[in-house]
Structures are given as C-alpha cells and as structure tokens.
Amino acid sequence: MTSLRFMLYQLRRNPLSIIGIVIILTFIIIAIFAPIIAPPPEGHIDPYMIPRDGYSPIPKPPNEEHLFGTTEGQYDIFYGVIWGTRSAFRVGLIVIGVVLVVGIVLGSLAGYFGGIIDEIIMRITDIFLAFPILILAMAITVALGPSPDNVIIALIIASWPSYARLIRGDILAVREEDYVEAARGMGGSHLRIITRHILPNSIYPTLVMASLDIGAVVLYAAALSFLGLGAQPGYVDWGQMISFSRNWIVGPPGNPLAYWYTVTIPGLFILLFVLGWNLLGDAFRDILDPRLSRK
C-alpha cells in the first residue's frame, strides 16, 4: 500500500506525467465513444471506412458540416481522426502485446537455461536486429502484400528481438540470486521458478520499454501507411490521411496556407498520441527505476 501511495506521490510530483496520463485517457475516451462523437452517416456500411462527401479532388476547409474540413477525395477529416484513434490503439496494443509474449517466452528460455538454447536464440535475434526496423517492416509488408493486418505482422516480426534480448539480460542479472537458489532447493519446477520468482523481479524494465514503444509502433505504422504500404484508400488511419494531403501542402498563389488543415490536424493527433505514451513511459521509468526512487 505504501508503495502505491509512493507511486502516486511520484506521479503528482511530475507535471509532465500527469499530462501524459490525461492525453492517453482522452484518447481512450475518444476511441470508446467514437460512434457517438463521430456517428457514421445513415446507410454507411463499414464504420472503419471514412465517409465521403462527393469525389472532388480539392480539399474543403472546415465548415459546419465537416468540422475539420475534407481532404482530397472529400474524405471527412473529423471522422477520420476520431475513428483513427481506434486503429492507432489496435496497432499499438496488438503489436506490443504479441511482442511482449514472444519476448518473455524466448527471453526467459534463453536467460534461464543458458547454453545452447541461449546461443541459438541470441544469434537469431542478431539477424533480425541487423536491419533498421522500418526497412525490415517495409520489406515484409511488401512481401506479404500491403494491408493493415500485414503492417501489424511486419512490425511484430521486426520488433520482437529487442524484447527477447532485454528480458534475457534482466533474467541473467537475477538468475543467481539467493531467493532463486532457495526456490530451486525447495524443488520448484522451472516454470514455477521463472514465473513466480524470476520474472516478477526482472520484468519492470521491459514494461517501461513497452509503454514507450506503443508510441514508437504507432509512428512506424503511420509511416508505413504514409508511404502507401498500409490500408486501402479511405480506411480510418492517421498516416494515410497525411498522405492524402501531400498534393495540397502549398496552396494557390497568394494563399499558400489554404489547405493547412489537411496535414496539420491528422499530424497533431499522431503527435499527441505518441507524446502521451512517451510521457507515460518516462513517468513509469522514474517510478520503477530503483536508482532514482526514494532519494
């Protein structure tokens, strides 16, 4: 209980982490209440496709009907950014969730058993880590065929190795501790020792990295769909909405900022979403890093 109170005290002391929590809570609310905030128009079949108001290529500025205006092809920006929150959570949570499970399983195997298992798993991570994430994810997406699900698969394949390595390292650090020896001496099974004694004492750095990485994953996914490797046109996706604005960065002569809303608004959503997770991850780190706490 005292540690919880201490955690809350730490959180309160750092205004930046409060901002992070508020931002993420806001996005959670937006994602849950998307059908109420931006109700799909009547007769609209798939709510994950942005409704269009005509087919004119020229974006229209914010007006009563379209709160944030429309992009090229008359996709409603307000609807897109609100529902895009759901896609962002979907990518971030699925990728990080799967990567955590894979990383914990392989990292524990490598760190706990050592020897040949460790060697094999670590050499495999070496191979994957030899590629910059975006480049590997790009190649995998092209190989699997561009689609939102394949972007998720590609990001999972490209990012699990760093988790496996991190967990392995943290497990190595506690593997020889006395309490692990004691549990072993009392005849605890490997599974029990790993899940009850080792992981609870070595998982925190990984959880911090995971919370920081949700933002990074969403950035990579947005970049891939900006590059044209994500969803089909019209899917609720922030990265793609920005790619819709590419032809409208500079307005007509005399009014160069005429189409500012097409690029600025979806970009601000991505920025705030990622910023929120980064602030939150920083706060977690400050709380969980024993070297910093209780000084």
Binding site: G215, F226, I242, I249, V250, L257, I270
Partner: peptide, 14 residues
Amino acid sequence: WSLPTFWLGLMLLM
C-alpha cells in the same frame, strides 16, 4: 522524439 518525421517534413515544406 514523438514527432512523426513525415509530418514534420510536410509542415516545414508548408
């Protein structure tokens, strides 16, 4: 660190 590179570039261009 939270900035989407592609967005930053487009804003600078704008």
